[in-house]
Structures are given as structure tokens and as C-alpha cells.
Write a protein that binds this DNA or RNA. Structure first.
Lengths: 120, 120
DNA sequence: CAGGATCCAGTACGATACTG
DNA sequence: CAGTATCGTACTGGATCCTG
């Protein structure tokens, strides 16, 4: 099966990396992993609002791209730890800048929205 | 109508700003506007692969957030120019860093993907 | 030319149930 | 605990047609 997205990304492959990083949950996963190694359930709590499915999927994508390191311990109950690779750390730092910027400027954006909504 | 996304963003409003900026087309629009003022059709060509609908929608969202300035000239045929506001410029710069980072490190990511795919 | 309106397909996503 | 599998739905986003 060939999806449009694949064709699209063949034309510009770096977009696919960027889209993984900037994906809804990707941003948050990278952000929270900046704080250090985390277990699956810790990530879920830390992010809030992610389903297990999406978290697992996001982590797999980021692991495949070499941004996240997955370490599974063969014990019962299972224990899996996620952390940033050096490459992932670089990406996460930049994402974090963007995230903190938007927090910092949130009020300006909200003002702009009010102005915009008022006159239309 | 109340969407889940709205409820979700009420819990953490700054996420909504971040999501607009990091949205699939938002990233690209901000990136291309760094080069300067552009008309609607120029943006479409410059980005490549956007439908008119999504471009218009993205531009409206960014305009509402005070990141993009829309200037419409009352002539026939219509002429509308888009540019970055000072706030938008700040955001765009950070996004551009992320974008150029992912281009620069594309090969590393592709290597990681190969390794990952090979062993599973 | 710059979009708005409409329609529709594919996808993303969440809920639930299940397993090692 | 850390997932996978399956299912159903809401939404995204593209195609098309239309207008000032």
C-alpha cells in the first residue's frame, strides 16, 4: 500500500522527520524526556491526555528515527525505560525552546485572538 | 458544539498555540514567510502539496493568533499579501531552527531507521 | 486571483479488551 | 506493567465547484 504521505515525503524526506518531531504527542514526549529517563507509565502521567495506543505509537516512531532510546528489562512485571539519544537531545532542546516561547507569549496570542474575534 | 480538543486545550492553553505553530502546514507557512511578504498563490507554489483550503485555514489560524499579517487590496483581481508580525517572526525563527536541524540530521535519522527496520 | 461552500475518503485517535 | 489487537468515530484534509 502506498499512501499519499509517502509519496509526499519522498519529494521532501526531511519533512517526515520534522513531522515526527512536531507531531502532537512527539512534541510532548520529547519535552518530558528532557527531564530524564522515564518509564512508560510515568510518561503517560506526565503528559496527560494520551491514550496508551498513541503514546506507544509515538515512542516507536521516535525510537525508529533514532531520537529515543528504549531499554526493556526482562523482568516480571515488565519494566521499560525511555530516554533521549544524543540526537534526540538536540531535537528536544529546540522543541523545548519553541514550547517555552509559546508559553511565554501566550498572553499576547490570546490578546490577538480577542481583537481578531471582536471585529469579525 | 464542544470538541474534545477544546476541552483539552482549556486544561493547557499554551498547547494550542504550540499546536498551531507546529501543525503540518503551519511550520511550512512560517518558514516560507521568513523570506518576506508573499501572496496567496506564491505561498501555495512555495510550499507545494497544500490544498487551497488548508492554506487558507492555516493562514487564518496564524492570523488570529497574531503571528501573520494579512493585507487585502480592494482591487480586481483580488490581491492579498501575507507577512510575519514581529511576534510571528520570533516564532518562525525558532521553527526554522528546528527545520534546518532536521534537514541537517536527515542522514542520521535515515541510518537509524535502516538499523531499526533491519533487526525487527 | 483569493478564497468560501460542500462533499467525501482516509486517517488519527480513543475506548475497550486482551496478553506475556 | 507495558504493551498489542480490534473496533468505531471524529476529524483532517483534498477535490471540486462557485463567487466577488
Amino acid at each position: 500500500m502506498v499512501r499519499d504521505a509517502d509519496v509526499y515525503n519522498q519529494r521532501c524526506p526531511s519533512r517526515s522527520v520534522l513531522e515526527h518531531i512536531t507531531s502532537r504527542w512527539g512534541v510532548l514526549v520529547l519535552g518530558i524526556l528532557l527531564a530524564g529517563t522515564q518509564r512508560f507509565s510515568e510518561l503517560r502521567k506526565g503528559i496527560g491526555g494520551v491514550s496508551e495506543k498513541m503514546l506507544a505509537q509515538t515512542l516507536q516512531t521516535l525510537e525508529r528515527d533514532g531520537l529515543v532510546l528504549r531499554k526493556a528489562y526482562p523482568v516480571i512485571p515488565p519494566r521499560v525505560e525511555y530516554s533521549l539519544t544524543p540526537l534526540g537531545l538536540e531535537a528536544a532542546r529546540r522543541v523545548a525552546e519553541l514550547a517555552s516561547w509559546s508559553e511565554l507569549n501566550l498572553s499576547k496570542v490570546l490578546d490577538a485572538r480577542q481583537t481578531y474575534d471582536a471585529q469579525s
